[in-house]
């Protein structure tokens, strides 16, 4: 089972799953009034995550209204329930939350309520919908890290200091080259909910066939807490980084982390070439110093 962002070819299967699952899980609602078209209407403007099996068959989905940190939908096909798919979808959805999320759940759905409670969600409110059905509002755990590709949020000083002084790969990086590298990349920042930057990475990509992951780091205070893994999971679920034919990176010491996300040694090293100048920034410094 894998979880991926929504792709348009899944639309029909998801609409069917949404219809079938609601009919079987909500026996107190009028199943005849439900339609396939409900799916598009009920997920408009939302960020969708889809669980599928090894054959590409959809097993469930989660839908998040990001503006309000609201988990609008979480459905697992009846035949696929009880296998941890809901939990996996919820964990993936958590990467979309920027503050403590909330959801509404029918009070008459004790199985769902027990599931959310088990996942650390607590009731904070309740109401009754137009048809008289009682719902509960549940609030989920505050995220420990929030990822964003908004370049304006970066703590540029922190990132530059780390790369140019502490990293083993970019020591001596000149500021102008650093700024230009941000311009030409998809930058990813990981932030504490209070705004402090905890992690950084950038992907050099055409958003279609190829990507190169570079300059990945986690600040000292956030190491050993799964921050790197969360960053990789975020990248894995990024809608613009899907179906790349080749995704590459270089690492001296983090093979174990990347291996968990499908990266491995070059399959055919004889077909990959590189032109590399490890000491380029030292050469540049010397040349610029002379000028």
């Amino acid at each position: 089972m894998t979880i991926l962002p929504y792709a348009p070819h899944q639309h029909a299967a998801l609409a069917q799953l949404y219809l079938d699952t609601r009919r079987s899980s909500f026996p107190w609602l009028d199943g005849q009034a439900m339609q396939l078209a409900d799916f598009a209407r009920d997920t408009a403007d939302e960020s969708l995550l889809v669980a599928q099996d090894a054959h590409g068959q959809v097993l469930g989905f989660a839908s998040v209204y990001e503006k309000e940190n609201f988990l609008h939908h979480l459905y697992v096909a009846p035949a696929a329930q009880g296998q941890g798919i809901g939990q996996a979808l919820l964990q993936a959805a958590a990467l979309r939350f920027t503050a403590a999320p909330s959801l509404k759940c029918f009070a008459a759905n004790p199985r769902a309520l027990a599931f959310y409670r088990q996942q650390g969600w607590q009731p904070t409110g309740e109401g009754v919908d137009a048809a008289g059905h009682r719902w509960l509002r549940l609030q989920g755990p505050q995220p420990t890290i929030v990822f964003s590709t908004d370049c304006a949020r970066l703590d540029r000083e922190l990132v530059y200091q780390y790369l140019s002084r502490e990293s083993y790969w970019a020591a001596g990086l000149p500021r102008d080259i650093f700024e230009a590298s941000l311009q030409g990349s998809l930058v990813i920042g990981g932030y504490h909910p209070d705004g402090q930057q905890l992690a950084f990475a950038r992907v050099i990509t055409d958003y279609a066939t190829f990507g190169y992951l570079a300059d990945v780091f986690v600040v000292d205070s956030a190491r050993g807490q799964g921050t790197g893994k969360a960053l990789m999971r975020y990248l894995q679920l990024h809608p613009r980084l899907q179906n790349l034919r080749r995704f590459m990176l270089a690492t001296a010491d983090a093979h174990g982390l990347y291996a968990q996300f499908g990266f491995g040694a070059l399959g055919k090293p004889e077909r990959i070439m590189e032109k590399v100048e490890p000491a380029i920034y030292q050469r540049l410094a010397a040349e610029r110093g002379q000028a």
Partner: peptide, 24 residues
């Protein structure tokens, strides 16, 4: 609930001399 659709109860307490309900 029947008067104001979409009203959300966010708290309640029943004590011996007073009860309260909080709404968003």
């Amino acid at each position: 609930y029947q008067t104001l659709p979409d009203v959300e109860k966010i708290g309640a307490h029943i004590a011996e001399h007073k009860a309260r309900i909080d709404f968003a």
